[in-house]
Amino acid sequence: MSRSRHRSNMAVFLMPGMIATTTLVGLTVALFGDGWRDQLSWVALGIPVATALHFGLRRGRRAT
């Protein structure tokens, strides 16, 4: 993806949509049992947290 291109809604919401879906899977799956379902929910709910940390704390590349 080039930095200057004008992105479609599809492109803009691809990552947010995947993160939201993953979150919802994580929230739901642990409701239906313990064990592997809990572990799957930790991974799934870890994704929005990890994404926030990764991009939020990334050392600033100067300007765009």
Binding site: M1, R3, S4, R5, H6, R7, V12, L14, M15, P16, T51, H54, F55, G56, R58, G60, T64
Partner: peptide, 9 residues
């Protein structure tokens, strides 16, 4: 976000 990559700060 039209002109930015996801996660850009």
């Amino acid at each position: 976000m039209r002109k930015l990559d996801f996660g850009t700060v």
